[in-house]
């Protein structure tokens, strides 16, 4: 089976002339359909740059990124926007909900943009809201609900259009541990039941332990890969912590 995401020799350079900075260097990996992958690393390692490049929000200086058989690194302008709309979903640390719309309306937005029939939109919103446990608050406004509920709403919005690939940038960064657990459990059960492919960037070992596989990057290089395999989530969490401790210097800012 062909991989969903194929990253080949990606390099990203910021700046011009002599004053350049290599944020990413020679990054290559693949992600298959239905995977739940985490990307970890200390601050400044290039996690966010990598996510931006993969999510087509920024373009790489060199290299290719294939999503299925399309090379998004070579796409431009409207083509990119259409691709992003049709195939990718995003979850951000600060939720990015629209204050003036209700939870239901926020979730329906990507579907409305794709111009689906109203009945179908209604059904999708309902079932997605149930999966994330927010069916009861569908008609509330973002300022009336908690941070955890906001992030679940944002996740619903990212998943409702059934994208091929979900990118989550520090999704639990602003949540307390209970809310974070709820969200991650919802994401991982969606991943298991519906084989949604999810990639999250995090420096929180707890969040990362929900993933099936973790890629570590440091100073713009990919230097280690960990698979959860048959380990329990708790055992995996310990493994991650050990790995982070070995990473040294950056160790303290990952906890």
């Amino acid at each position: 089976m062909e991989s969903l995401l194929q990253v080949k020799n990606v390099e990203k350079v910021f700046g011009k002339g002599t004053n350049t900075f290599k944020a990413l260097e020679d990054i290559s990996f693949t992600i298959d359909h239905g995977e739940f992958v985490g990307i970890m690393g200390p601050s400044g390692a290039g996690k966010s740059t990598l996510l931006h490049v993969l999510a087509t929000i920024d373009s790489p200086t060199k290299g290719d990124i294939y999503i299925e058989d399309e090379n998004v690194a070579k796409m431009k302008g409207n083509q990119l926007v259409d691709f992003r709309r049709d195939h990718l979903g995003f979850i951000f640390q600060d939720y990015n909900l629209l204050d003036s719309l209700t939870v239901r309306e926020n979730i329906v937005l990507p579907l409305a943009i794709a111009k689906l029939p109203v009945k179908e939109m209604d059904e999708k919103v309902e079932s997605m809201a149930k999966a994330f446990g927010i069916a009861a608050i569908l008609d509330k406004y973002p300022y009336q609900i908690s941070g955890g509920q906001k992030q679940r709403t944002a996740s619903c919005r990212a998943l409702v259009s059934n994208p091929k690939l979900i990118f989550a940038d520090e999704p639990t960064g602003a949540l307390d541990s209970k809310s974070a657990t709820d969200l991650l459990q919802a994401l991982s059960s969606l991943n298991e039941e519906q084989e949604t492919t999810i990639m999250i960037v995090t420096h929180d070992a707890f969040a990362a332990s929900f993933c099936r596989r973790i890629l570590f990057i440091s100073d713009g290089h990919l230097f280690k890969e960990m698979n959860r395999g048959t380990h329990s989530r708790k055992a995996f969490y310990q493994m991650i912590l050990e790995e982070l401790a070995q990473l040294g210097g950056g160790g303290h800012d990952v906890i």
């Binding site: 629209l98 003036s100 719309l101 409305a112």
Partner: peptide, 19 residues
């Protein structure tokens, strides 16, 4: 009216205008 509002960004337009 979902038939109108849930089409493209109409929802957004309407709620922005309301405020």
């Amino acid at each position: 009216r979902k038939f109108w509002a849930w089409k493209g960004l109409n929802l957004m337009t309407a709620s922005q205008l309301l405020y």
